[in-house]
Design a protein around this nucleic acid. Structure first.
Lengths: 209, 209
DNA sequence: GTCTATATACGGATAGAC
DNA sequence: GTCTATCCGTATATAGAC
């Protein structure tokens, strides 16, 4: 029995459809989603969905683009702030990202699982090519390694570790919750703890010889 | 244009279908997969697929179960070996798992994205309930924390960190490759480096005050 | 066991009334 | 803008010949 959560509140029809679409697409993925389900969740008729968005695919592209934007946006500002130190950037990214994921835990899995079908198009449309490399964060990291202040390994390792430790628990949450006997609330407590812990862990990694 | 890789070699028809099904399901997910595509990849007719496996769903369940088995199996043996130290277990899990993922990089995303639809059934069928907690690894880890040898945080954090740093790069590989301007080969080189690096990083985390 | 042909259902999209 | 009714392509599954 799928829950029949109708979208309520003071939204235009177009907004209600988008909200419903985001929920259903995120939960079930593109192929498993029926436009009828979106319409029902939005409290409108199927025909109206097509009236506003022309097709399932166009609606989906919109939602996906916005999801990727949210992802990219929450990294970009912080990683490119010329004024902050490497350490500060890490603290800010980790903290901001975990806050975001606690409220929207389904987005990473949604993006990653759909991306495997046609990565090229979206990645170029989003300007993600070389995105990490062009950040101020990456330049600082390279300098720190060159100066011997950070362990001499490929700088991407630290970026990967940071994103992994922040994002993966949310991606694997159903497995982690049952394999680690956690309830929703315990899980969120653990994730909140990680806002302080992950930066410390990364710093420790960077100092290793 | 989907590649028309027919399954060749000395396999029975049933095996060929399963091999083809694993490839197509892993790449596209359940809903986006057409049984016709599996049949074509297996070099047989659509009707024959139903002759052997009754339905798309039954075939899928089989593939999913085997994928989860592979995941669980590669952890279970190592984590429950009473004779090895905590450190040794970590080294073995990380190394074995990365080797597995380099050859089968699509499995985690496949499992995790399908699991979000109906986690309960598969998790209970797989005996994953409390799986982590019942391991010898977890007992050793708790003892080490109690003895003050490991930082006093929730032991699951370290398990999460290990799995995150190992698995996540493969789950996010399309994004990482383009955002970090890596080719397939560079990516694998990096992952191979991580077989040695991740255990060191975990040890450093565990020693923090 | 393996095939061709087909029944049947489902889902996206549109026509047309209001 | 919003609805009801319907069209039509597509995908699973089966019947039945070989």
């Amino acid at each position: 029995m799928a829950k029949k959560n109708k979208i309520t509140g003071d939204f235009t029809t177009e907004e209600r459809i988008k909200i419903a679409a985001r929920i259903v697409f995120t939960k079930k993925g593109y192929a498993a989603t029926r436009t009828r389900d979106i319409a029902e969740a939005a409290g409108i008729n199927l025909a109206l969905l097509n009236y506003y968005f022309r097709s399932k695919e166009k609606l989906f592209d919109l939602i996906m683009l916005e999801s990727l934007q949210a992802f990219k946006h929450s990294l970009k500002g912080v990683l490119n702030d010329e004024k902050t130190t490497l350490e500060k950037k890490i603290e800010q990214v980790v903290s901001g990202y975990i806050d975001l994921l606690i409220t929207q835990p389904g987005i990473p899995l949604f993006v990653l699982s759909e991306l495997r079908h046609d990565p090229k198009v979206l990645i170029s449309k989003m300007g993600l090519k070389d995105f990490i490399y062009r950040t101020s964060f990456m330049k600082q990291l390279k300098q720190a390694i060159a100066a011997g202040k950070v362990a001499p390994v490929h700088p991407l390792h630290f970026m990967i570790n940071m994103l992994s430790m922040v994002i993966f628990p949310f991606v694997a949450s159903p497995l982690l919750k049952s394999a680690g006997r956690m309830k929703e609330e315990e899980f969120n407590t653990l994730m909140t703890e990680r806002k302080k812990l992950i930066p410390k862990w990364i710093f420790a990694q960077m100092k290793l010889k």
